[in-house]
């Protein structure tokens, strides 16, 4: 098996965050069997940063250029991968919203098993072994995928390692394909907010906020991190309509693994913990010193959040030299 194909994601000519991490995962997997790593980029025109992919781990960078790739066009990507698939033991994508849409399509087209949302991928004899959280992180499943495998790797699971090679560029032909899903574009919200699943820092609020307008306090704290923080929420406040569901962290919301997670006025229901327990550092602020959230927090402060959060915002700003 050994040779690995990474299907990288680009949007508007810019590679998506996580591309280097995916190549690192692929590199480590390929090196186990002395194989090669190819990176495939499907785009409508030029893509910036392709010359960095060699250093990130790609032996070859395959560019598939087609006007249909101006927006996400899964059928075209699937057709392209299908046309070059011979010789690869595994196809890797990032487990982003797009990657999770693409991976099962690739698997169905290649007749391959599919490992979704994996945090570790390695070779195990002839099989590809993947480790992945299930039951929203309440358990960890290890699977062996036999034959060619399609694997969607969580962007946060690997840290990019520079391999120091230069990747060869090569154009590949996009075969004719029938577009069935017509993506017309991506609307970005007026207030450019970072997705909780992507942010390095998540400031999450729960029922302890008392009132939806108090999310303003959390937005100020997030803003102090200068664009690398997003505001999250517990299910209770999303269900109460205090904040849109995209902010929900937990079993029926998003699973996040930021470097720093603030749980503010969040009691720590089991469904919420399932969605954030893999955060590197968890800080809990709650007026109830017995709140379960303190059991998973690295650092806890008991107190009135209306007093603690503004003080914290000021301190973060000071620490960041703002």
């Amino acid at each position: 098996m050994a040779n690995i194909l990474c299907v990288l994601e680009q949007r508007g000519g810019t590679l998506r965050k996580g591309s280097a991490e995916l190549l690192t995962a692929a590199r480590q997997l390929a090196d186990q069997g002395g194989g090669t790593v190819d990176a495939l980029v499907c785009a409508a025109g030029d893509v910036a940063g392709l010359d960095t992919l060699g250093a990130a781990g790609a032996d070859r960078v395959l560019t598939a250029t087609h006007a249909g790739f101006a927006h996400y066009a899964p059928e075209g990507i699937v057709a392209t991968v299908h046309s070059i698939a011979a010789g690869y033991g595994a196809v890797l994508v990032s487990a982003t919203a797009t990657g999770k849409d693409l991976a099962p399509r690739l698997a169905a087209a290649l007749g391959a098993p599919c490992g979704m949302d994996v945090t570790a991928v390695s070779a195990s004899g002839d099989a590809i072994r993947v480790v992945r959280p299930v039951y929203a992180g309440k358990a960890i499943q290890t699977l062996d995928l036999s034959g060619v495998a399609v694997v969607a790797v969580r962007p946060s699971a690997y840290t990019a390692v520079a391999a120091g090679k230069a990747g060869a560029m090569e154009a590949v032909t996009v075969p004719a394909f029938t577009q069935r899903l017509n993506v017309s574009g991506i609307s970005t919200p007026e207030k450019a907010t970072l997705d909780v699943a992507e942010a390095r820092v998540v400031v999450a609020g729960g029922r302890g906020l008392g009132d939806p307008q108090h999310f303003g306090l959390l937005e100020e704290l997030a803003a102090a991190f200068g664009g690398e923080a997003a505001v999250g929420a517990s299910r209770a406040v999303v269900d109460a309509g205090w904040i849109e569901h995209g902010a929900q962290v937990g079993q029926t919301g998003k699973t996040v693994a930021p470097d720093l997670y603030f749980a503010i006025g969040v009691s720590g229901a089991i469904q919420h913990l399932a969605g954030m327990r893999t955060a590197r550092t968890i800080v809990a602020i709650n007026r109830d010193k017995d709140a379960p959230i303190f059991k998973v927090a690295d650092f806890g402060i008991v107190g009135d959040l209306f007093e603690v959060v503004p003080a914290l915002t000021a301190a973060v700003k000071a620490a960041k030299g703002q």
Partner: peptide, 24 residues
């Protein structure tokens, strides 16, 4: 099936955290 479940395990427990005090 071309997928075998090798194992299902509980996630590693987080080390106990530390209370830093009360209020601001």
């Amino acid at each position: 099936s071309r997928v075998t479940v090798v194992s299902l395990a509980m996630p590693p427990e987080r080390a106990a955290g530390r209370m830093l005090g009360e209020g601001a």
